[in-house]
Each structure stands twice: as structure tokens, then as C-alpha cells.
Amino acid sequence: MRLFDPHIHMTSRTTDDYEAMYAAGVRAVVEPAFWLGQPRTSPASFRDYFDSLLGWEPFRAAQYGIAHHCTIALNPKEANDPRCAPVLDELPRYLVKDRVVAVGEIGYDSMTPAEDTALAAQLQLAADHGLPALVHTPHRDKLAGLRRTLDVVRESALPTDRVLVDHLNETTVKEAKDSGAWLGFSVYPDTKMDEARMVAILRAHGPDRVLVNSAADWGRSDPLKTREVADLMLAEGFDEDDVDRVLWRNPVAFYGLSGRLALDVTAPDATHEGNSILRGGE
């Protein structure tokens, strides 16, 4: 079984997670730029983060046989902080890089005017750079947030079929599907979706344009949720081709819109019985 986690914040995860993910079948991940729990205070902090997403993190992933790509953006939460918003001006030089496969996560958190501005500007950046967009839907007031998101997308230069709306659930899946966007679902231990509800949604709405992710980060979350959804799909009567479609081919198709996916992993040859992450030597 080959698995692609299309939304996971590996910066916040350990090498044990990488090892367990590989053992579970994960061979590719996309790490969207997001907030780090602790608010940033300047564009310089974003630059270091983006550099890590394009440097150290793909190196770590490659040592565990996992292809790492990222999406770059100013996230909606920090778009509200005037100390951070100027990083918008620096995004273009990151959006030309290899392995940047979308603009994201963008979208709404509290639906403020500053978030309106950042969302519209970054949808335009996606269109300008030939990239699709990963759009986060808000945790609070989700259905209203989805509707407002889709309105902004429709007014933008980016076609809706180049947008993935993420963190969907039972209340938002139908309108998102009707819009023509790609459909993302985050499966969490306690919040967002769980495996059983995910499989029920797949049965009700079909696997077309559906992506399932763990969205694992620094909070309570589980980087093996993609595998657990795959296992439950098989147990509930979906076949292996359905699983491969949802958990490999759909993310490859969506992020492949960038023309920048490189799924063959070449692990650095220069590791001594393991890897240079073992700082003290093995």
C-alpha cells in the first residue's frame, strides 16, 4: 500500500514518526506552511521557516524514504498581525522554488478584513506562479467560512478546479463538491474528522477529487491516520484501487498541477549507519 499524506506539519514531528510513517506505507508528504503555535513577530521568522521547509525538512524526510514537498504562504491567523503581514512581499521569490507545489495554507481564521486581503492577494500569487492553492476552512463558523472562501475564489484569477478546500466535514462537503474544488479532509484523534465518519463520507459522496490527510502537527494528532483510513476503507468494502485513488492518485493529481512533484526519493548517500540527525554519532 502506498500512501501520500497531502497535509502534515513534519517540522513538529520526530524521526520516530518518519520511521512509523514509512513502515505504514507513507512515501510522500506535503507540508503546508502554517503557524507554529507560538506567534511569530517578523517576516524574518517566516523566512527561516520557509528555508527549513525547503532545506532541512526534505533532507530529514529523504533519510526515511519519504518524498517531501511544501506549500508556502502567509497563514490566515498571522495575516492579522501587522508585524507579519509584510512577508507577503517576499512570497514571490519562494513560489518559484522547486518542490513548492502550491500556495497554502491560505483562507480564513476569524474572517477579518486583513484575512480578506491576504486571501485574495495569495490566490492571485498562485495564478501568477502556475500553482494550485491549498485553502484552509475555519474551525469556527465553518459553513459561513466555506461560503465566503468560495466567493473569494470565484472572484479570483485562479480557477476553482485548482483549489483544494481543506478540513471539510459533513456540513461543508456538499457545497465544496458542487463548487468544483478538490476536497480535503483532516482526520484527527478528537477533533475534525475521524476514520469512521471519513469512510461514511466517501460512501456518500464518492472518491472523486477527495484527499485525506492527518494534518498532524504540534497538537494532539496522529501521523498514521492516513493508514487507518485506508485500513477502514478496505474493511468497509472499498477495494484497493479506491484506496490508492484517495490516498495516492488524487494527491498526486492535485499537487501535480504545479508540475513540480518529484516522487523518487534519493536518500543522501553520506550517512553512517543511519543519519546525521543522530547528532552524537551512533
Binding site: 526515511y64 534519493t266 548517500d269 543519519n275
Partner: peptide, 8 residues
């Protein structure tokens, strides 16, 4: 785990 390079 390590994965040997496969490219030429």
C-alpha cells in the same frame, strides 16, 4: 533506514 541512490 537508508535508501541507496538509484540514479546514474
Amino acid at each position: 533506514m537508508t535508501h541507496p541512490p538509484t540514479h546514474q
